[in-house]
């Protein structure tokens, strides 16, 4: 029974995919994805999740394929999750980390990407401190690109894995969803807000004005300064980490004062629905973003999100590498 797991996986995947492809050749922004793409990704992720959970994680779906994680900014969890996903699928995965400034060694980011392209890689997973870098590189290379976080802009797979987690919990209901904290510097917010708008969620944001992006209401977001007022009736709360590494520190007076106003504390949670889901993209700063009591309560889905990062990224990698449409060689 156990020996047949990969075979059964293949059968289940075929059924779930039913010959479909993503509508895009690169995964750069949630903007580019359709509702059909979300469906495809979520149904494949379900299959991959069952497979991974059975314990025999390795299959040969991407045997002989090369995935390059091209990370120009520090990352542990995202990089290892992409790496593991690739390895579970049987691909060869290598990690390349550049300096955060493309010009530091004198080579442009574009030239670095073209070098990796010329090595016949099958997928480039790109993280960069500059918003738009993966988008700009996608015009220069033949290899499909996954945006694994670009500046303050987007981090689409992180949004997808959270949406997948919420779907496991709530099904396909249109949720009332609350962001708390630093939306300004958060690329995870950038992807999530686009995704939830497409899914028809009612979106709120509770944050001090200094951390709210200009014209954020055009994303369909209702802004609150007082978290207590925003909590009423929401199904899910996402605490956004204060991006102190992006100099967000000066946008608030002190962490102490911030947490007094915006930390998800047990007292605040009594204002929300009993079964409200608590979410965070990690790394969590305890007692600052979320109080330990809340983080360790059954409402908290943070560990589930980490678990779901693998099947989502397996689905993304498999779909992009086996896309029947190919990019045209740009040079």
């Amino acid at each position: 029974m156990k020996r047949n797991a990969p075979l059964q996986l293949l059968a289940n995947l075929k059924k779930a995919r039913s010959g479909k492809n993503l509508s895009v050749l690169d995964l750069l922004s949630i903007d580019d994805l359709s509702l059909g793409d979300f469906e495809l990704l979520f149904s494949l992720s379900e299959v991959f999740k069952k497979f991974v959970k059975r314990g025999e994680k390795k299959c040969e779906l991407l045997k002989g394929k090369t995935i390059i994680n091209f990370f120009n900014e520090n990352s542990t969890r995202t990089r290892s999750s992409f790496e593991l996903a690739g390895k579970h699928l049987g691909a060869d995965v290598i990690n390349i980390s550049g300096s955060s400034s493309s010009g530091r060694k004198g080579e442009t980011l574009g030239d670095s990407a073209r070098t990796l392209d010329a090595l016949n890689s099958d997928l480039l997973v790109i993280r960069d401190a500059n918003a738009g870098a993966p988008f700009q590189l996608s015009k220069l290379v033949r290899t499909p690109i996954v945006n694994a976080g670009d500046g303050w802009h987007e981090h689409p797979t992180q949004a997808l894995l959270e949406a997948f987690t919420l779907r496991e919990r709530f099904g396909q209901r249109k949720l009332k969803y609350l962001f708390v904290g630093d939306a300004l510097h958060s690329r995870v917010f950038g992807s999530q807000v686009r995704l939830y708008k497409k899914l028809g969620y009612e979106i709120r944001l509770a944050a001090p004005e200094t951390l709210i992006p200009k014209n954020v209401e055009k994303f369909g977001v209702k802004v609150f300064y007082e978290i207590e007022k925003a909590l009423e009736g929401v199904d899910a709360i996402h605490a956004i980490r204060l991006q102190t590494e992006r100099a967000a520190g000066k946008f608030i007076a002190t962490g102490r004062e911030y947490s007094k106003n915006y930390c998800l504390s047990p007292a605040r949670m009594t204002l929300a629905k009993k079964d409200v889901a608590v979410l965070h993209a990690g790394p969590v700063i305890r007692e600052f973003d979320i109080r330990t009591e809340v983080l360790e309560s059954p409402n908290c889905l943070v560990q589930k999100m980490v678990e779901n990062s693998l099947p989502i990224r397996m689905a993304v990698e498999w779909l992009l590498i086996t896309n029947s449409k190919k990019k045209i060689k740009p040079w």
């Binding site: 918003a131 738009g132 802009h153 987007e154 200009k214 055009k218 994303f219």
Partner: peptide, 13 residues
């Protein structure tokens, strides 16, 4: 420029 475009692009305006 700071505005809806900079917010969409994730760039500082």
């Amino acid at each position: 420029n700071e505005g809806w475009t900079s917010t969409r692009l994730g760039l500082v305006g």
